[in-house]
Write a protein that binds this DNA or RNA. Structure first.
Length: 425
RNA sequence: GCGGGCGUAGCCAAGUGGUUAAGGCAGUGGUUUGUGGUACCACCAUUCGUGGGUUCAAGUCCCAUCGUCCGCCCCA
């Protein structure tokens, strides 16, 4: 048997209701904030990610699906969305429209990793980018939209962690201070952290190794090494969040894994997900547009992991099912033909109609009608076919009434009201 | 990439070397050939993820492989 590749998954009808709920909530919430959807290619030139995300990051270093296409061009399945949005922003000269660009996207991303709960090789994100604004209000708006979406989905037990990684100069200065602090402890650090000491010392703060954590505890904090301007930006963002009644905690160890982040970095986490706890991650990336060849453009954004959101929603509510309102039971050649026509007409009139195609005994068809969750049956046998009528049977009460087929559509308003009243919530 | 757990029908499972692989849900047929929801009856794995091996005998032990889950790592 040929099966789906490791780390990929089928999303079956029993699960897809959650996805649709998330998509509808995102579309509505972001629509109200006047963000525009953007749809982008799933693969790009490898150089886009190498330059955008950073050569030293794990994502670029060991997790990309990279291959050469005919003609030797190196292409990569996108491991995240921001680099592509920025590429499109530059290529289509969206900056020429002036003002800010508010964009969102959704779709599959690809990273070659060991699969785990909440972690696939093909996974899905919905993400948002606000380009062309350096005001702290932009950071706050973007974070508020993320918490809105999660709240409207009914999710509880979420925590917002926030930190500032400053601008390039702040970071260089902090990096030196951190290395200076860590060097005496070099031999006490875990293996990964030793490797990172020169390459990417900020990530050491994130280590889960107990001894390393102990050392990191007393490390200098980046917020103490920010320039006045950076500090002011961070404080303002925090203030604005408080004004919006958004609870946060400053996490001095929060350092995101992609190189392009500047100033604000944040994560929304859940305790109900195991090791892959981050539902939403994002931050400001003031240097990326320029780095990729565009004009100097400040920007801020985030991405939400859809699979992780689905996992949380599944703990909260059952999958919305699509039940028919009307179920058509028919038997006999003429009746079956008429049933098909009625089904089409009723569907066009706005009813959810399931047609029993089995041709089996009436008893069996009624049994299926029951299980389908339908409110009423339309029954057609030889007698009804002969008289061009139909038996309308209400399944809860068992009441039946004979109706001329030609009268059925004229009654549709009345039927809709009655069905709505009888529908199971 | 590293370490560990698991893999019996569509789903949940019992089974711990002795030969017919429990049970439940779902499904199909019947009691009921024009009327359902209940009940009862029957059917539903020559086979235990896959491939090798050990043994007189393997779902049960060993090896490999695939998948899945947990942790590391990474991140959404």
């Amino acid at each position: 048997m040929i099966q789906a590749l490791r780390g990929t998954r089928d999303i079956l009808p029993e699960e897809v209701g959650y996805w649709q709920l998330i998509e509808a909530t995102v579309r509505e919430t972001l629509g109200r904030a006047v963000y525009q959807e953007i749809r982008l290619p799933i693969f790009e030139q490898t150089a886009l990610f190498e330059r955008g995300i950073g050569e030293a990051t794990d994502v670029v270093g060991k997790e990309m699906y990279t291959f050469s296409s005919r003609g030797d061009k190196s292409i990569t399945l996108r491991p995240e969305g921001t680099a592509g949005v920025v590429r499109a922003f530059i290529q289509n000269k969206l900056h020429a429209q002036g003002g800010v660009q508010r964009l969102w996207y959704t779709g599959p991303m690809f990273r070659y990793e060991r699969p785990q709960a909440g972690r696939q090789r093909q996974f899905h994100q919905v993400g948002l980018e606000l380009l062309g604004c350096d005001a702290p209000r932009a950071d706050a708006e973007v974070i508020a939209l993320a918490t809105d979406i999660l709240q409207r989905l009914g999710l509880k037990n979420l925590e917002l962690d926030i930190n500032s990684v400053g601008n390039g100069a702040d970071r260089a200065q902090y990096r030196a201070a951190l290395i200076n602090y860590l060097e005496p402890y070099q031999n006490d650090l875990d293996e990964d952290s030793k490797d990172r000491l020169m390459r990417n010392p900020l990530r050491i703060l994130d280590s889960k190794d107990p001894r390393t954590q102990e050392i990191a505890q007393n490390a200098p904090k980046i917020t103490e090494h920010l320039s006045l301007e950076s500090k002011k930006h961070f404080d303002t963002v925090l203030n604005l969040l408080s004004n919006l009644n958004i609870k946060y905690q400053i996490n001095h160890c929060l350092v995101r894994g992609l190189d392009y982040y500047t100033h604000t970095a944040f994560e929304i986490k859940s305790d109900d997900l195991g090791a892959q706890a981050t539902v939403c991650g994002g931050g400001r990336y003031d240097g990326l547009v320029k780095e990729l060849g565009g004009p100097e453009t400040q920007a801020v954004g985030w991405a939400i992991g859809m699979e992780r959101l689905v996992l949380l929603l599944q703990q909260l509510k059952s999958n919305p099912v699509i039940a028919p309102e009307l179920y058509i039971v028919s038997r006999g050649e003429a009746a079956e033909a008429q049933g098909l026509i009625l089904a089409q007409k009723l569907r066009n009139a706005g009813f959810a109609v399931e047609l029993d195609l089995s041709g089996s005994a009436f008893g069996k068809q009624f049994k299926r009608a029951d299980r389908s969750g339908a409110v009423a049956c339309l029954v057609l046998g030889d007698a009804e076919a002969e008289s061009k009528s139909v038996n309308l049977k209400w399944l809860a009460s068992g009441e039946q009434q004979a109706i001329a087929q030609s009268d059925l559509l004229g009654m549709s308003q009345e039927l809709k009201v009655k069905i709505a009243g009888l529908k199971k919530p």
